[in-house]
């Protein structure tokens, strides 16, 4: 019973938060509601017995990613609203609605479950975090390391891109030269 209540509550909250995110004209509001939505999503992870994933969700999204967005917004003048020349609503809502409908239709059909075999079955004897650790550092060790390197690369890229000198970058200069030549 608790599960049902929790699921519907958090589902409603998440949907509301995300709707605010995509519709709000103010970037600051959008970001705040996004952060709230992320935290509510972690609730689903706890409901699904994926404790570690839930913790990671809170730390990474609500902590790191949101902080990044916040910092990025400091670079820009977020109080100035971006004037949006929005495309016709009808098309957008038709497309999204149709996709939602079709996805739901597909998902509602029963899945033949006896064909699916668990490769790394969960067991009750050890906790989720421990189980995740075992799988992550055995079977998924190489992807894990690759992901680590990818994060490092992304970090370096972020630093380089956002550093001061980048507003007069080499690429930019070439771009301008090309434009000048085109004008000539």
């Amino acid at each position: 019973m608790f599960e049902v209540v929790a699921f519907y509550l958090f589902a409603a909250l998440t949907i509301v938060m995300f709707v605010i995110t995509v519709t709000s004209k103010n970037a600051l509001y959008a970001m705040s509601s996004l952060a709230a939505g992320m935290i509510f999503i972690s609730a689903f992870f706890f409901l699904l017995d994926a404790d570690f994933l839930g913790v990671v969700q809170i730390i990474v999204y609500s902590g790191a990613v949101m902080a990044l967005y916040a910092f990025a917004m400091m670079f820009m003048d977020t109080t100035k609203e971006v004037k949006e020349n929005n495309p016709p609503k009808k098309i957008v809502f038709f497309l999204s609605g149709m996709i939602a409908l079709l996805l739901v239709l597909i998902l509602l059909t029963p899945i033949i479950s006896d064909k699916v075999k668990a490769l790394y079955p969960m067991s009750d004897e050890i906790g989720n975090t421990e189980a995740v650790g075992i799988v992550l550092f055995t079977k998924y060790l190489v992807p894990f390391e690759v992901a680590a390197i990818m994060l490092l690369v992304a970090m370096i890229a972020g630093i380089i891109l956002a550093s001061k000198r980048m507003d007069e970058s080499i690429t930019l200069k070439i771009d301008q030269e090309i434009e000048q030549k085109g004008a000539e």
């Binding site: 995509v22 970037a27 967005y69 917004m73 971006v82 949006e84 929005n86 495309p87 098309i91 999204s96």
Partner: peptide
Amino acid sequence: LRRKNLLM
């Protein structure tokens, strides 16, 4: 689809 603000 709808937003034109890159941050969005």
